[in-house]
Design a protein around this nucleic acid. Sequence first.
RNA 1: GCCUGGGUGGCGGAAUAGGUAGACGCAAGGGACUUAAAAUCCCUCGGGGUUUAUCCCCGUGCCGGUUCGAGUCCGGCCCCAGGCACCA
Length: 828
Amino acid sequence: MVPRYEPRRVEAKWQKLWEEQGLFDASEDRNRPKYYVLEMFPYPSGRIHMGHVRNYTIGDVVARYKRMQGFNVLHPMGWDAFGMPAENAALAHGLPPAKWTYDNIDYMRGQLQALGYSYDWPRELATCDPAYYRWEQLVFIEMFKRGLAYRRKAPVNWCPKCQTVLANEQVEDGGCWRCDSPVFLKELDQWFFKITAYAEELLSDLDQLTHWPERVLTMQRNWIGKSLGAEILFPLAEGVEPIKVFTTRQDTLWGATFMSLAPEHPLALELAQGTPQEPEVRAFVEYWSAQNRSRGVLEEISKEGVFTGRYCVNPVTGWQMPIYVANFVLMEYGTGAVMAVPAHDQRDFDFAQKYNLPIKVVIQPPGQELQAETLSGAYEDEGFLVESGAFSGQASAPAREAIALFLEEKGLGRRAVQFRLRDWLISRQRYWGAPIPIIYCEKCGLVPVPEKDLPVVLPLEVQITGIGGSPLAQLASFRETTCPACGGPGRREADTMDTFVDSSWYFLRFACPDYQGGVLDPGRVNYWLPVDQYIGGIEHAVLHLLYARFFTKVLRDLGLARLDEPFARLLTQGMVLKDSAKMAKSKGNVVDPDDLIQKYGTDTTRLFLLFAAPPEKDLEWSDQGVAGCHRFLHRLWNLVQDLLPDLQRLKPYQGAGTELSPELTEFRRKVHRTIKKVTDDIEDSFHFNTAIAAVMELVNAFYLAVESLPRDEVTQRVFREALEAILLLVSPMVPHIAEELWQALGHTASLQLAPWPRPQAEALEESAITLVVQVNGKVRSRLVVAASATEEELKDWALKDKGVEKWLQGQTVKRVVVARGRLVNIVT
RNA sequence: GCCUGGGUGGCGGAAUAGGUAGACGCAAGGGACUUAAAAUCCCUCGGGGUUUAUCCCCGUGCCGGUUCGAGUCCGGCCCCAGGCACCA
């Protein structure tokens, strides 16, 4: 009785056995090369979705493949468990966030196990566990002591009705997402991490990340946004503090005709004081300071400004420059003041036209002569300086350098670097997060919680109301404490940390999740890190990956780890689409992994996700495609079952001894070519789709061979060799069916620990090849020739071939090009 | 506007290094088996043409170039996706 392929039975059986044997639990081993493969851990939202399945399947194939290649593989999984959805669920269903979260984790862990991922489960961690966040709190304190964590006022979104701060994502069309009342920007004290202190290194170390996708690198470069330029001082008429400006175009300094200040600039009101323009300036500043000038809004706003009634001096031309307050100048970038060069900056040009300000051309494009009077827009490109004193005639680039030096010598300014990157605001007025371990004392100020008192445990017995801010702020038992410094009364910080902090170092803790002696166990962390292969969605290209890189560098500088960059290789996998749209409940195009496992099993699900597209591309879901993959597994199963009675007791052919027939040699060559192809596809690019296609081809060829070849013992042994190769090759992708069939062949040791197959050089050798014969680049004939043929022979045979005869009639052969092993091209 | 990808059959996608375009799979059409269906297996499957064959022409977003030979390299353009954007 031949057993039928019953995926659910097979999969449950092996999942249990692998788990019992602890096959995937890693420990340090200096005798083997280590390999740390990690997928971005999930938020426990309730259920695993298809995007997770794709992500984790890719990671699992890598983990299993590397294990078979002899690497000591670390492949852990955990939970990014703090965050707002837990609070929302608490509001909606009255469940405590902790219970909701842990219930979800339990359910989703079961799903991951049913998908058969080879995780090192004993290392599992959840960021909401005090055993995890106590170390995060310790890192915070160390950062606080070094000035890398600090507190200052910052504008935040505030809903006056709910009395709470809103995340940017919770502001919809300028209103509160829950009560729809207008949201205000409010200045509140917030905690920051000084990521700007690492801006230069975060930028330059991107050059080391040669195995990251180019687009992620450019996105990070853009985000950090380094600009080289100069700071220039523009004296005010009365000998007070000059106005400081940052520019990248000091080569246009001689064309600066007026000055623009941001509405928030402290000088804006100060300068206007006592001038006839004062009321107007005051109104303008008040209006624009209250406006939300964040993205989207700005595009529709036209450039506006008001004259302050005062002038500053262009330090090189001596011109009196009227000082304006302008709505397009950002206080957050540079110095909040801009030298306006209308001839060479479009914004300044628009502004100058509107308010009738002078335009002066100081850069001429090569071979042209621009006139200020006839200019229809700013000339922003480089060129040659004119009317720029001693620098006239120079090209823009060298002039910038020379002018910067000149300014430094004269004390008028200095070379300067600006970054777009801002410090990371990490405090959240939220409940479900890691408490910030700080105590406020009237006498001592901000006092960090002593290390022996950590963790500051998040109280679980709280009422989530959604109004009045974080419940922690109202909880006297949490807030009221004593000052660790003076013993007087103190109040705990009620803010919690951004969940991005939790995910900025979990990959380090996975090396030593049970370590009690500190944040990280140096021996284990330095053994396992860096992550050799990190896999996740492109949506984390900037935030998570930048924060994680920053944290790694901070931990390095705290002496806790010896590495500069956390992720050696990065794979950003594409989205799973259905009907050309991302799967989402709201669109009703979701396919639930549970249903699929129920119907086809996890091996089919995994196979489809790997086969339908290369991992970095978006994947269009296809129910029929899934069925096709299921068919293939059936074909494989039936092939083994058919052959089993004959070759169960045979040894695989190993390439020596008996001479093989040409047909059998050809078949065996196909086997070894497939081994090579699959290995190369996985090794070079993780292109599992083409690897699977190659195995499908081999299985097709196998069916033909079974039909056509005589079933003598040598053939059976070659078949056995082929079957074993196929099972080894597919085992990382469809591990359960592969293991089941492996054992059916009589193996007692697990396939999981079997070595990856290698192609045999002799088996790959070809005695004959198909030679393509072209005439003037068009294929006219094909010849089967000996692979060992010389160029002269190939040329000869091609010219004599009947198929090309008629194309050469009446033509003179001018040239014959021979590409050995491929083709001959006859040129007439 | 700037940056990064990408445009190949009805669809997902293949094509080492410039050397047979369309592997593999899906869908579609035809056939075998069957009382029937499912399942399975076999054949056809870019477009056009004719003398129907080891046939010819066209064809990888568009235009041009390099080359014996271009999906692949170079120049110019069009379109799509994603990211950044009054960043001085």
